[in-house]
Design a protein around this nucleic acid. Structure first.
Lengths: 220, 220
DNA sequence: CGACTCCTTGACAGCGTTCAACAGTAGTGG
DNA sequence: CCACTACTGTTGAACGCTGTCAAGGAGTCG
């Protein structure tokens, strides 16, 4: 029996979408970030546009007292840091060791051809759609619904692997869902007790979804 | 003494931004919606792009059990319904009697020149920035902070009038902030008791901000 | 004038937070 | 490779912010 574990590895060889944005002949580089290191900070000049090759990135905003809201997780293939303004509106850092491609931002916005404009709009629009859905989740869903939504999102984006390996901690998930890490933990335990999912080994980050329909039902 | 009450009336004569998007010579029309009527529904084909002339629009998503999350309020001068996909992702309806300009969506996306692409990106980017900030509010702020943020946003967008006239109900505000109308009401009363604001007359929708610095302090 | 909507306020319940203890894991350095 | 330490995650107990339910007043509109 074939078991697919966190697909998307194949995308790692070519920066597909980034190339569409900046043009085939533009300069782009690779860079590797250690776990926990910052890629760029909120309000810094937006010099580069990034695409994840391997690993995972979180983008977030902070309140002055340290409260954090994660806006998105970026997985292999995802573009992030594409700002129309001249500064980044989020801080971005590596959740685990992460490799990215990067291209200078000017190479996107300087020569806005009809084609690249459409490509840029498409990328911006996708993040707009994601964040709009996230509004409904943050404002109007319970902690169990939020956790179920999160699992379904990860499941979908990892292309429904037999086993899901989460790169982020319970605290990251909590700050993404607007709840505390304890509440995430309790929701996960509830879902496990109800037979919706099971943990592999003792790590608690390797998850098998046993009942996707039931999970989907929790969301609506 | 001059008292400016909800400025922006001047913008009502020309659809400034819309014209930049669709071109000077494009066809656009005016339309008037009665209080509470729907402009377009979520998942409907995105046929038109709108700009508010007079009144106020709310855009929102619904859960199957009726829970509602308002994504934005659109005031005179604001563009809404500009979707890159082919369907609307929100429902939009008129909070009060509202006049809008509208232009066919194709007139924006069919002839994507370098100039109109930049204009479109600018509009999309503005709504992206707004919704990103709203994530932090919904996920990580208390009800008092949310209410203070709301008041400051309205104050800013109405250009800091001496007296602020809110077009939306407590329920609308609640669904915008991800809390209940009772909690909004209590927060407003608290702010009144603390001398941050006062109500004019008995209507509770006409508000004078007495202490903007204190209000701003509550948010950070 | 009557019915309806909107808003405030009070009482109480409950979901999620806070604080704490503990176990298991992973990272670090000898 | 092992020991040490920090990190991560779970679970319990108590608290408190916000939601729920209810009552009542004021404004609005036909």
């Amino acid at each position: 029996m074939l078991i697919r574990v966190n697909a998307n590895k194949s995308r790692a060889s070519v920066p597909t979408k980034l190339t569409a944005l900046v043009g085939e002949d533009s300069l782009w580089h690779q860079f590797k970030y250690k776990r926990g290191t910052e890629v760029f900070g909120e309000a810094e000049p937006a010099a580069y546009v990034y695409q994840v090759s391997e690993g995972a990135i979180r983008t977030y905003k902070l309140l002055s007292d340290g409260r954090r809201q994660i806006g998105a997780f970026h997985l292999p293939g995802d573009i992030f840091g594409l700002e129309n303004g001249d500064v980044y509106r989020f801080t971005a850092d590596a959740i685990i060791e992460t490799t990215v491609w990067l291209a200078r931002r000017e190479s996107v916005f300087s020569g806005l051809t009809e084609i690249s404009a459409a490509a840029t709009l498409k990328v911006v629009n996708k993040s707009l759609e994601h964040v709009e859905n996230h509004l409904l989740l943050l404002g109007r869903q319970t902690s169990l619904e939020k956790t179920a939504s999160f699992l379904l999102e990860m499941d979908r984006r990892l292309e429904q692997p037999a086993m899901m390996i989460l790169p982020m901690s319970r605290r990251d998930i909590a700050d993404y869902l607007g709840i505390t890490l304890e509440t995430v933990s309790r929701a996960m335990s509830t879902l496990r007790d109800e037979g919706v999912l099971s943990f592999v080994g003792q790590t608690q980050r390797e998850i098998i979804l046993l009942d996707r329909p039931k999970l989907a039902q929790l969301v609506r």
